[in-house]
């Protein structure tokens, strides 16, 4: 099965009366278990693709299918539901909610699914243990290091059993040692069969993926699988 499929996707914005064409017909497929790095210079359309894959935005033309869901024309509420149930976000700035503890942060997507059960809590604890924060469930984000925060974010991205993890420069704020740890964790998750789509402009981060898609001026420049 495909985790994501983009078919001739275009996105246009109107900015101060001028139409900006951020994406000009991009197509690719992401099979389950793939590890894709989307790369490109700034303005190449990386963020637009990320927003579209993350169901934060809708395409102007083309079709986007995530797993079994055609999300091209869904309304705001239904896109929210897809995000809660099927997408695992990891951000550059970790984006944890400061007033919540580690375990509560991990549970946020479940909360918006309306799935707050004992079983769900057990699963969140398991995930926290898996990313090595089993002993810090009651800590707040400010009490954690950057690497630890990003681990919480990764645990959070897995809690809803998503089609894919969508990571936006996940190591952008981290030092080299922590970067390596986080990339190892992503490798490990991919090894377990998780699909990862990663947006980065760093070559060495991109090199950890199986396949690199390069964008230029809103178009696909290259799509190279360099590892299986």
């Amino acid at each position: 099965m495909l985790a994501a499929k983009l078919d001739n996707v275009a996105k246009e914005y109107v900015l101060k009366g001028e139409t900006v064409r951020a994406l000009r017909g991009v197509s690719f497929e992401a099979p389950e278990g793939d590890y894709i790095a989307i790369m490109g210079a700034s303005g190449s359309g990386k963020s637009t693709i990320l927003n579209l894959l993350g169901c934060l935005d809708r395409p102007t033309h083309g079709t986007i299918v995530l797993g079994n869901d055609n999300v091209t024309t869904l309304d705001d509420d239904r896109l929210s539901t897809i995000r809660a149930k099927r997408i695992g976000f990891v951000f550059q700035a970790y984006n944890l909610i400061p007033q919540l503890t580690v375990i509560e942060n991990i549970e946020v997507p479940l909360y918006y699914q309306g799935n707050i059960t004992r079983k769900a809590r057990e699963r969140s604890v398991e995930l926290a243990k898996m990313v090595g924060l089993g002993s810090r469930l009651g800590h707040r984000p400010t009490q954690l290091s950057g690497g630890q925060q990003q681990r919480v974010a990764i645990a959070r991205s897995l809690v809803n059993d998503p089609y894919f993890i969508l990571a936006d420069e996940p190591t952008g704020n981290l030092d080299s040692v922590t970067t390596a740890e986080i990339l190892d964790l992503l490798d490990h998750l991919n090894g377990e069969g998780r699909t990862i789509i990663l947006v980065t402009h760093e070559d060495d981060v991109g090199a950890r993926s199986k396949r690199i898609i390069r964008l230029r001026d809103g178009q696909l420049e290259s799509d190279v699988r360099h590892r299986d």
Partner: peptide, 16 residues
Amino acid sequence: TREIGIRRALGAKRGD
């Protein structure tokens, strides 16, 4: 604002 953005990204509907 940022918290609102995070919550929306993680699946919060406008109503939430």
